[in-house]
Simulated assay, not measured.
Amino acid sequence: MMSEKDLELHNKSENTAFSVAAVAGHVKTTSIIVKKNPALVDILGNDRMMPLYMVALFGKADMVRYLYDISKKMTGDFWSMIIGVGS
């Protein structure tokens, strides 16, 4: 029921609902949220961490695979900017 922009809001810990669901390992929930707002994959959370990095730290293998795939295997514009590809 949340709007695309509302999904980008951060909680007190600076995480989006998408990041929280991802860290919890809820692949189905995150897939529903990201369909509404694909930009959430690239929104930094607590300590400026990417959602993919957060789920890797928590050892959520299924979620890591899912986020890696929807991040275009970390080759999109945002990822290129972060890791300095092409600079």
Rank of each mutant, 00 (worst) to 15 (best):
M1N: 12
M1S: 15
M1L: 13
M2D: 10
S3Y: 04
S3E: 04
K5L: 06
K5A: 10
D6W: 00
K12L: 11
K12D: 12
K12S: 10
E14N: 04
N15L: 02
T16Q: 00
T16K: 00
A17P: 01
A17K: 03
F18C: 01
V20M: 07
A22Y: 01
A22S: 09
A24I: 03
G25A: 05
H26S: 14
T29S: 11
T30A: 14
S31K: 14
S31Q: 12
I32V: 11
I33T: 05
K35H: 10
K36S: 12
N37I: 08
N37R: 10
N37D: 05
P38A: 08
L40M: 10
L40H: 09
L40D: 05
I43A: 02
I43E: 05
L44I: 06
L44N: 03
G45F: 02
N46D: 02
D47G: 00
M49D: 07
M50S: 13
P51A: 11
L52N: 06
L52P: 04
Y53D: 03
M54E: 12
L57T: 08
M63S: 07
M63I: 14
V64Q: 09
V64H: 12
Y66Q: 04
L67M: 07
D69I: 15
D69T: 15
I70R: 02
S71P: 09
S71R: 11
K72N: 15
K72D: 15
K72Q: 15
K73E: 14
K73D: 06
T75M: 13
T75N: 13
T75C: 10
G76L: 07
F78H: 14
I83N: 11
G84V: 10
G86H: 04
